[in-house]
């Protein structure tokens, strides 16, 4: 007869155990908030961890209409969309420039831009606040868009540059012989060829900016200009006791990002892992 448990079997059992515990820790909170979002506060306080008996989908409608969520959602969508659009064009142009041309101080300029990745945000946020006031961009959605473009610029350039650099040079030489202008080369060759990398940066920037909080809280004061993370926090304050309703509010903030993830998970992972894997 075999021994009941070989050492490697034990190890395997331990690993599976670990995986089970970790999965509960990792997915549990999300499942819990999803369940609470469909239950009323009375039901929750009676049994915080029970399954929903009746699914109260009306709560989503009510959180949406009664709490200015439509405004916050719209603001988040416009701000993030504009910032990502500008980022893609401006970052793409710069990345193309770094990848294709040689010029003086190229290394230095690249290093300068790239080094902002490790800047702690507080070193910019106070000066930024003062400068935005002077530009007349304080408490304005346009101002927030510009700041978002600035903070995501280094990563965008980094990802796109490494992709552009891999496009075969022959393609560009051929285009030049065909009489393409430099701009046309960028617009009609670099961008289309690099579409996978570009969609990666778009998804990555969308998710990071969708969740951004610090700059929004410093630069926006007016309720009508707030983005969703600020809205969620305000919602928390307004609903003090109403745990069920807050859970619904949280779900509204989570769902769009999860949807993006479901549709673009491969691209997203590529984007987020770019740079970390060698």
């Amino acid at each position: 007869m075999q021994r009941t448990l070989s050492p490697s079997g034990l190890r395997m059992a331990a690993l599976l155990m670990f995986i089970a515990i970790y999965t509960a820790y990792s997915a549990g909170p999300f499942v819990w908030v999803a369940m609470m979002s469909l239950r009323t506060t009375t039901e929750i306080s009676a049994a915080p961890y029970a399954l929903p008996e009746t699914l109260h989908f009306w709560k989503f409608a009510s959180a949406w209409t009664e709490s200015n969520y439509d405004t916050y959602f719209f603001n988040s969508v416009t701000i993030v969309f504009s910032a990502v659009a500008i980022l893609t064009i401006v970052g793409g142009m710069a990345a193309h420039c770094f990848a294709r041309y040689r010029f003086r101080f190229k290394g230095l300029i690249y290093l300068l831009i790239f080094s902002t990745i490790i800047f702690p945000p507080q070193v910019t946020v106070i000066g930024l606040f003062q400068i935005m006031v002077e530009y007349g961009l304080y408490n304005s959605r346009v101002g927030l868009v510009m700041v978002y473009v600035a903070i995501q610029m280094p990563v965008t350039i980094y990802i796109l540059e490494s992709f552009f650099a891999r496009i075969p040079k022959d393609l560009f030489d051929a285009a030049r012989i065909d009489g393409y202008s430099e701009w046309a080369i960028f617009w009609r060759i670099s961008l289309p060829v690099a579409l996978p990398a570009i969609s990666t940066t778009i998804i990555l920037n969308t998710i990071l900016l969708w969740n951004e909080f610090l700059y929004a809280v410093v630069l926006i004061t007016e309720d009508d200009k707030r983005t969703l993370p600020l809205g969620v926090l305000r919602f928390l304050g307004d609903q003090l006791e109403d745990v069920g309703m807050i859970a619904t509010g949280l779900m509204i903030a989570i769902v769009p990002v999860v949807l993006i993830y479901v549709f673009f998970s491969e691209r997203l992972i590529q984007g987020m892992t770019a740079g970390a894997v060698k």
Binding site: F129, V133, N139, V217, T221, L233, R234, G237
Partner: peptide, 21 residues
């Protein structure tokens, strides 16, 4: 009139007043 919770109100005022807004 804009109604706030106290903490967010103070936070908004601090920045807005510093910005003369």
């Amino acid at each position: 009139i804009s109604w706030y919770q106290k903490e967010p109100l103070y936070a908004a005022l601090k920045t807005a007043l510093t910005a003369a807004q």
